[in-house]
């Protein structure tokens, strides 16, 4: 099939960007979306033009590196699918496809479709862990976990940190990402000692970054390639207010 692409090109963080039109010819329906871009890039290199920069790594939908707006949808039109697992059979001959980077103040563009998502790392650093040093763990079966709790915790832990939730949100909010980790750990017995301090620390960090606020559009849930539920946002909010009543404040607040 032949396609017309409108791709965001931006040479660096401080440069102006623009959409550039490319023709993608003889695209096989069996190609992944990123393989289609590979083919376009090989054509660009042949012509002496710099190829399109985009983040990608595992190409099997688990590392969370890839991500782009495809016709206005984070990771494209197919639900529960990362851009690398989207295949060209989802498109038809003659289609026009607009490809843009994640658009969020907290994710500045580095080049073309590549953005800086380090804000996510800082949210985890603020408290997204159980504080247990290597060597101090009790026998694994000394802490039974009800299967139902373990299963829900797993649903939250499946987050790949790609940023689609933020990119799709009209407010660029990071509630789904943050709540996924708050819930994963908060649902497990191992996470209880730090449960309330964790949520205030992570929320404080989230709010100090350039994310917007959640106004319950639930676009994040629809865009999430791992189909993580907004129920976790409600859960995080409950924990957050409970923490405030318990007098928990982020350490940085003095």
């Amino acid at each position: 099939m032949d396609l017309t692409l409108h791709v965001w090109r931006q040479s660096g963080s401080n440069a102006d960007g623009r959409l550039v039109t490319y023709e993608a010819k003889d695209i096989s329906p069996d190609m992944s979306f990123l393989e289609m871009l590979d083919v376009v890039n090989e054509g660009l290199i042949e012509k002496g033009e710099e190829p399109i920069t985009f983040d990608h790594d595992c190409r099997e939908g688990i590392c969370g590196a890839c991500g782009m707006m495809i016709n206005g949808n984070a990771h494209g039109p197919q639900g529960g699918t990362t851009a690398c697992q989207l295949h060209m059979r989802s498109f038809k001959d003659g289609d026009s496809i607009t490809i843009e980077p994640w658009r969020a103040a907290a994710f500045p563009v580095l080049k073309d479709l590549m953005v800086d998502r380090s804000a996510f790392d800082r949210i985890i650093q603020a408290g997204g862990y159980v504080s247990v040093n290597t060597g101090s763990a009790p026998d694994a079966n000394e802490i039974p976990v009800p299967k139902a709790d373990a299963d829900v915790a797993f649903e939250a832990a499946a987050c790949i940190g790609c940023g689609a939730c933020v990119a799709q949100c009209p407010n660029s909010a990071a509630q789904l990402f943050t709540s996924a980790k708050v819930s994963h750990l908060g649902l497990l017995p191992q996470g209880q000692p730090e449960r309330y301090q964790r949520v205030v620390e992570m929320v404080a960090q989230m709010e100090s970054e350039s994310f917007g606020s959640c106004t319950n559009h639930r676009e994040c849930e629809a865009a999430c390639p791992k189909e993580i539920s907004t129920d976790f946002i409600a859960r995080m909010n409950r924990d957050y207010f409970a923490a405030l009543f318990k007098g928990k404040r982020p350490a940085s607040a003095g």
């Binding site: 101090s136 763990a137 026998d139 694994a140 299967k147 373990a150 832990a157 994963h184 191992q190 996470g191």
Partner: peptide, 14 residues
């Protein structure tokens, strides 16, 4: 396994 369970790795459970 002990270390990872203590970290909250959501292993499959009975």
């Amino acid at each position: 396994i002990d270390q990872c369970a203590a970290q909250g790795v959501p292993f499959a459970r009975e």
